[in-house]
């Protein structure tokens, strides 16, 4: 083996070592979470860590549903995530079509409005937003969360970036064939932008599912709470029920994991092609 090859092998070993280290650190908390969720409370902090408990306590996964209204939290979160995602994707791709492919009065100004607000953090105007919502009687309703999540400027911007890449000739040809603008959107734009739509679906779903501050502000009644603030309430109420807290945590991760893994293939693809490049 010459020096060059030796260096290449060394380089490869180094890279795999690095990857292994990153993977280990990424997985460690999840492994600890799952392992602890199957233990007795008193065994959770045993050291050295017993990764596979001798007698797994599956009962933890039954008890979490009885001790807290986890089912209601789940139902609320699924409901909000699905509605918000649906509205966001529909209205964003609709608006993005006009911004990308149509010419109209005030287009630039309107688009500037959207662009300018992408950079403004929601936290900077959440207070007046709350005042407005409560004056309309929306405090402690799911509608409040839907209203504040479903119309983000980011979605419009992202979809528009993708639509810009679809050739104008396609729309032109469809127009000559007598398709209306709505028809073009439905038959040409939507089928041709699946990677971007999938990316937006994952983003919106995950953001809504994981949102913390919004539900913390608006949903103070237990029956309305989402999984995030419900889990937080549980872990601060039963502080020493370590194993149960971990079991509940695992339960909240599963839906996101399913959505993510089933769409994962499109996701990296979508991110790479629709990208959010500067």
């Amino acid at each position: 083996m010459n020096l060059n090859q030796k260096m290449k092998t060394g380089y490869k070993v180094l890279i795999y070592f690095l990857l292994l280290l990153v993977t280990l650190m990424t997985i460690y908390p999840f492994a600890w979470m799952i392992s602890s969720s199957l233990k007795e409370n008193k065994d959770v902090f045993n050291f050295p860590i017993e990764w596979i408990p001798g007698t797994p306590r599956w009962k933890n996964y039954v008890e979490i549903w009885q001790k807290i209204p986890l089912g209601i939290f789940m139902k609320n979160t699924v409901k909000l995530s699905v509605i918000v995602t649906f509205l966001q994707v529909l209205t964003s791709s609709f608006a993005a079509y006009a911004f990308a492919k149509l010419d109209f009065k005030g287009k630039n100004i309107l688009f500037m409005c959207y662009i300018a607000t992408i950079a403004i953090p929601w936290q900077a105007y959440m207070v007046p937003q709350f005042i407005m919502m409560s004056s309309m009687g929306l405090n402690n309703t799911h509608l409040a969360i839907i209203c504040l999540q479903a119309f983000s400027a980011f979605g419009v911007f992202m979809m528009r970036q993708f639509y810009m890449k679809i050739p104008d000739e396609l729309c032109e040809a469809a127009r000559i064939d007598g398709l209306s603008e709505y028809g073009i959107w439905l038959r040409i734009m939507v089928p041709n932008s699946m990677p971007a739509i999938t990316t937006l679906i994952i983003f919106t779903f995950v953001t809504t599912w994981n949102d913390f501050l919004g539900p913390q502000i608006y949903l103070t009644e237990t029956r309305l709470k989402t999984i995030q603030i419900g889990l937080r309430m549980f872990s601060t109420q039963y502080t020493s029920d370590y194993a149960l807290i971990m079991a509940a945590s695992v339960a909240t991760l599963i839906p996101v994991l399913i959505v993510f893994l089933s769409l994962q293939k499109y996701f990296v693809q979508g991110m790479m092609s629709s990208a959010v490049k500067g």
Binding site: F30, W32, V44, N210, M246, V256, F260
Partner: peptide, 19 residues
Amino acid sequence: VSFFPYVASLVAVATVWRF
């Protein structure tokens, strides 16, 4: 794998880290 922490729910993973 390296993308998963990003989608994982914050409350759940923050609680593990705290433990």
